Simulated assay, not measured.
Amino acid sequence: MQNEKILSLRDLRMNFGTHNVLQGIDLDVYRGQIIGYIGPNGAGKSTTLKIMLGLLDDYEGNVEIFGENIANGDVSYKRWIGYVPENAELYDTLTAAEYLTFVGELYGMSRKEAEEKALALLTQFEMEDVFHQRISSFSKGMRQKVILVSSMLHNPDLIFLDEPLSGLDANSVMVIKDIMEQLKEQGKTIFYSSHMMDIVERISNRIVLLVNGKIAADGTFEELKEQNKEGSLEGIFNQLTGFDAHKETAEKFVQIVTGNESNG
C-alpha cells in the first residue's frame, strides 16, 4: 500500500506576472502518508494546492493524481478528493443539514445518505442540536467543523487540508489529530499545510519545506532534525528559511508597545 503513488509533481512552475511563485517542484506522495507541507508566507504552498485541485491551470510541468494527468480535462479525480481551504466560504443562509446534504449530492451521494452521514459526523463534534440551524448563527469553531465534515463526507482517498484547525478549541484539535492518524491507517493520504509547527511535527510522517518556490527539505522529522541539528521543527524551519531575528523583532515590538524604546 505504501508503494502506491497517489500524487506526482514534475518540474511544477507557476508565475504571476514577473513573480516566479513555483520554481520547479518535484514531489511524489504515496498512499497512507501524512505530508506536512510548510513554508513561510509567499513560498507557494497555497498555489501548489490550488493547482493540484484544478483551481489554477496556467502552470508549467506535470501533475498526476491517481495516475492521471490532471491537464487532460477529465475532472473525475476530484470525486475522490477532499479539501479544507484556508479561508472557506459557506452559504450562511443554509442550515448545516442543507449545506452538507448539498455537498454530499455534488459528490454523487443520495440525499438521504448524505443527510444521515452528515448528522452522524456532526454528532461526534456534539453539534447534533444545531444540525437544522442556519450557519450564520455558528461560531468560527462550529463553522470549521462543518467545513471539516464537508471535506470527508464522501470518503475521499486524498485530503488537502490548508490550516484546518483554525478556530478550533484544544479538545477539538486533539480529536482532529486522532482522526488524521486513523485515516492514515485506513490508507488515506493527507496533504497538510499549516504554520502551526508543533502540530505538523506531531502528526506528519513526512515533512516538505517550501522556500521561495523550491523544496528546501523533504523527509521525516527525525531525518530533518539529524540533518539540521535542531531539536524542533520550528528551529529547523527558522534555520532553513534563514529567519533568526524573531527574538530581536519581538523585543523591538514590545519596546514600542510599552514605550521603553532606547534613544540610542
Rank of each mutant, 00 (worst) to 15 (best):
T123E: 12
F237Q: 11
K225V: 03
K184L: 00
G61K: 10
W80N: 15
I34F: 06
L9V: 01
Q186D: 11
S76H: 08
L148Y: 02
L153M: 09
F102W: 12
F125I: 08
V211D: 15
S137E: 04
R202H: 13
N228E: 13
E4N: 13
Q2S: 13
S193T: 14
V21T: 11
I256N: 11
E248W: 09
I215S: 12
K252A: 13
A120C: 01
V21R: 12
S139T: 08
V200I: 11
A216L: 03
L240E: 07
E201H: 05
G259D: 03
K247R: 04
L55Y: 14
D26V: 03
Y37G: 04
P156A: 14
D74Q: 09
F16I: 12
Q239M: 12
V211F: 06
S193M: 08
Q33V: 06
I236Y: 02
F191A: 03
L121A: 03
G259C: 03
S232D: 01
V75W: 00
M142D: 03
S151W: 03
L183S: 07
Y83V: 10
G141T: 03
V208E: 12
E185T: 07
T48P: 09
M196H: 11
Y91E: 06
M14N: 09
L158F: 15
N238D: 06
K184R: 15
T101H: 07
L168K: 02
S8K: 13
N171A: 12
Y30W: 10
M1F: 10
K117R: 14
D162C: 07
G44C: 08
T220L: 00
L49Y: 11
L56I: 15
I203N: 09
S8V: 01
E234Y: 11
I70F: 04
N62H: 14
N69C: 08
A245G: 15
K214T: 13
E261I: 01
N263C: 05
S194V: 02
T18M: 05
S150P: 07
M52P: 05
T93Q: 11
F66N: 06
E201M: 00
Q144C: 00
S193C: 15
I159Y: 04
S151L: 07
E89V: 14
I190T: 04
G235E: 13
G61R: 08
Q255S: 10
E185A: 14
P40A: 13
V211L: 09
N87M: 02
D218T: 01
N69H: 03
E60M: 01
I51Y: 10
Q33Y: 06
L53F: 12
I199T: 13
E261L: 06
A43W: 08
K177E: 14
F221D: 06
H19S: 12
I159G: 01
S204I: 09
L7R: 05
V173C: 09
G32D: 05
L233A: 11
D162A: 08
Y107I: 08
L233C: 11
Q23A: 15
I51A: 11
N228L: 08
T47S: 12
Q255K: 12
N72W: 00
V257R: 02
T93G: 05
E128R: 06
K5T: 10
T47W: 01
E201V: 00
N41I: 08
T123V: 01
L240P: 09
D11N: 14
L240M: 14
Y99F: 15
N212F: 00
Y83C: 10
D26L: 04
H19T: 14
T48W: 01
Q255I: 00
K252G: 02
Q23E: 15
D178K: 13
